[in-house]
């Protein structure tokens, strides 16, 4: 949903769009403008952001204001609103600087709790005000912010430098080397994690983003594409695997959380060339049409037959135990027949 509109990059002219006060972005041209997008439930504890925003507004132009939930002078645009979608930042906490001509000069997506990196701040300033700044200027600025008494320009730089929320992935590469020495990045939320997975009796070591679902690790990283992605939300069963012998949904399992468990996928069910009885029965009973749901059906069925609570079930009990596996081709009668055959085997 967030990627419907390809994100604007610095240098792009921002298309017109409505602002919550009834004006439009084009009407605001002639002055730099700062757009801040935040959830309307913005945490007042992060009020320092509003202070920085206010100073930026004073320095560069008028900030655009909206949001009832806003503490004091802080206003943000609803990050789920039309403008956010328009600018490709829907659902993201973001700050954008537009110059006098409405060209996007600087854009940053703010991750909650993320620390600002001084080099990035300088890049933000220089994106709009390309006069050269030198390191002593900046060092002085960051000292002054602590002692008070400073020029407007240094104040802006210093508050920016002290702010705890900006990052600008797209411009950082262009940041001049005169920036303040960058501290080691404090944000490693997307940092890859070493993940060791035991799949079909073999151990695999991967480097994964913690967001990776087991399903995606199997399919995208390990190319075990027998496990299917249907809904990706736990509603269809196509992604069913076994974790420690029990059926489970790989789409709702984070790969990091599957460590230490014996993972069995459809690829690991047969013993060499000998099919699992459920696999053989599915073929015999023609228990599929398009076959997309079939790996998930077979994984559920084989787990069902290994489980003392469901192993001896009647047809209706099998249906109940298989209800987590949808079949769009409605091969259900044949699936039940196949499972009953395997039950007798």
């Amino acid at each position: 949903m967030h990627n419907l509109v390809s994100a604007l990059q610095p240098g792009d002219t921002v298309p017109n769009g409505p602002l919550p006060d009834g004006s439009t972005l084009f009407e605001r041209r002639g002055r730099p403008i700062i757009l801040a997008f935040a959830p309307t439930e913005w945490d007042p504890a992060q009020a320092h952001q509003s202070a920085i925003f206010a100073r930026l507004s004073q320095e560069f132009g008028s900030g655009v204001a909206f949001a009832e939930a806003a503490p004091e002078a802080w206003h943000s645009l609803d990050y789920r609103g039309e403008l956010a979608i328009h600018l490709g930042v829907a659902g993201q906490r973001a700050l954008l600087l537009l110059d006098e001509e409405g060209v996007l000069r600087w854009k940053t997506v703010v991750e909650p709790g993320q620390d600002i990196r001084p080099g990035q701040v300088l890049a933000a300033l220089q994106a709009l005000r390309p006069e050269p700044l030198d390191a002593p200027d900046l060092a002085a600025a960051s000292t002054e912010v602590l002692t008070g008494g400073m020029s407007r320009r240094t104040f802006v730089m210093a508050t920016l430098a002290a702010a705890a929320l900006l990052a600008l992935p797209s411009v950082v590469a262009a940041a001049p080397e005169t920036a303040l020495p960058s501290p080691p990045p404090t944000d490693n939320r997307s940092a890859m994690l070493p993940v060791e997975l035991n799949i079909n009796g073999k151990s695999h070591r991967l480097q994964l983003d913690p967001r990776t679902a087991l399903l995606d690790a199997l399919r995208e990283n390990l190319h075990l594409t027998g496990t299917k992605k249907g809904c990706d939300h736990g509603q269809c069963g196509a992604c069913t695997v076994h974790l420690d012998g029990h059926s489970a949904l790989s789409c709702l399992t984070l790969a990091v959380m599957a460590q230490g468990k014996a993972i069995t996928t459809i690829e690991g069910l047969a013993k060499g060339d000998t099919l699992h009885p459920v696999q053989a029965a599915f073929i015999k009973h023609d228990a599929f049409q398009c076959g997309y749901c079939t790996p998930g059906q077979i994984m559920s069925a084989s787990a069902l037959l290994a489980d003392q609570h469901t192993r001896h079930g009647s047809a209706v009990e099998i249906r109940e135990a298989m209800s987590g596996n949808l079949c769009r081709c409605a091969a259900y009668p044949n699936i039940i027949a196949a499972i009953q055959e395997a039950q007798r085997a």
């Binding site: 949903m1 967030h2 659902g91 991750e111 909650p112 709790g113 939320r189 913690p210 967001r211 679902a213 990706d232 939300h233 736990g234 949904l249 789409c251 709702l252 399992t253 984070l254 959380m257």
Partner: peptide, 21 residues
Amino acid sequence: IAGGTSQVDLLKEGVHQPSLL
């Protein structure tokens, strides 16, 4: 996060946006 069946679903939807699990 425990079983993850509710949490992962809502993470994917963007309804939950924790910085740490």
